[in-house]
């Protein structure tokens, strides 16, 4: 309550005791829409698959076994590490990481630009950033496909401008996936960084310059460390959904650029599906995301200690 002042203090006293009641809706929503589905998924991942989709209530580790180990065609050979799915995971991390980096490189200057505009025009800029997101993600991803294909407007423009001699082939490459992810999640990078930069005290940059720091040193040793919480929040908000995305890799990446999201999606689609395996892959993805978040939280604790 420190720093709230007398009004805050009184409000806190007035509502004291009703706290548990007020937080109830939040708990109900988290319980029904977050905890329960995760529990169902965790349970399914340990069940036996039913061939036309669905599960049989017989506990087994088969799904995890299939993910990590190769026991040959009939399951009776010495177990070897199964690399297929691990590679898909690795590619997903790599793709999501590059997309995050791309978002950071574009998002940071954008957020900086908006936060340094006069107060009244900031709202307009923020609004403009969110406008494309009123359109459905699927539609946006498909339009991206049209934009970047070999005879699409982007290549046409570059050709006409004389910047390239032949179309750049982007569609069905890793780059296309990164561009798709970048486009899908850019605002999640811009908004938290904007919030951090808006609170940034520009006198710090003056102090750094006064103490003989070049612009580069000011950026790397003062500005970035001070707005770091916003940068990290933005990176998490972009990285986590990118990791599980399936629209962009499916539509822009082609078969070679399969990511976890697509792998999981396939397990729940049609007769070829394997619910326990899909659930297991989802649980492994979830654990990885949690590890990233826990490492981050621990870092924060250590810094504020």
């Amino acid at each position: 309550m420190a720093g709230l002042g007398p009004t805050g203090g009184r409000a806190a006293r007035t509502y004291a005791g009703r706290g548990p009641l007020l937080i109830l809706p939040a708990w109900v929503i988290i319980g029904i829409f977050l905890v329960l589905p995760i529990l169902i998924m965790a349970t399914y991942s340990f069940l036996t698959k039913e061939f036309r989709g669905g599960v049989i209530w017989e506990p087994t580790l088969a799904a995890y076994d299939q993910f990590f180990f190769d026991r040959g065609l009939f399951g009776d050979e010495q177990p070897k590490i199964e690399w297929t799915y691990i590679l898909i995971f690795w590619r997903s991390i790599w793709q999501a990481g590059l997309a995050t980096l791309l978002c950071l490189l574009i998002g940071f200057p954008t957020a900086w630009f908006i936060a340094t505009r006069p107060a009244h025009s900031r709202t307009v800029w923020l609004f403009l950033i969110t406008v494309p997101y009123w359109v459905n993600l699927l539609i946006r991803t498909i339009s991206m496909k049209f934009l970047i294909r070999d005879n699409g407007p982007m290549n046409q423009w570059l050709l006409n401008a004389g910047l390239i001699d032949e179309p750049i082939h982007i569609i069905n490459t890793n780059l296309a996936v990164q561009l798709g992810l970048f486009y899908s999640y850019l605002p999640f990078m811009v908004l938290p960084i904007y919030a951090a930069v808006e609170r940034y005290n520009f006198a710090l940059s003056e102090a750094a310059a006064d103490l003989y720091a070049s612009r580069w040193v000011t950026l790397t040793q003062v500005i970035i460390p001070v707005v770091k919480p916003g940068i990290i929040a933005g990176c998490i908000l972009v990285f986590v959904p990118s990791l599980g995305a399936f629209l962009a890799p499916d539509l822009l990446g082609g078969a070679k650029n399969f990511m976890i999201g697509s792998l999981i999606e396939e397990q729940f689609k049609g007769a070829a599906g394997n619910w326990p395996f899909g659930a297991a892959a989802a649980m492994i993805l979830l654990s990885m995301v949690l590890i990233v978040l826990i490492v981050y939280a621990r870092n924060q604790d250590r810094e504020s200690a």
Partner: peptide, 9 residues
């Protein structure tokens, strides 16, 4: 500086 502008980190 008036508000000191110490580097908080």
């Amino acid at each position: 500086f008036q508000q000191y502008a110490l580097f908080p980190h």
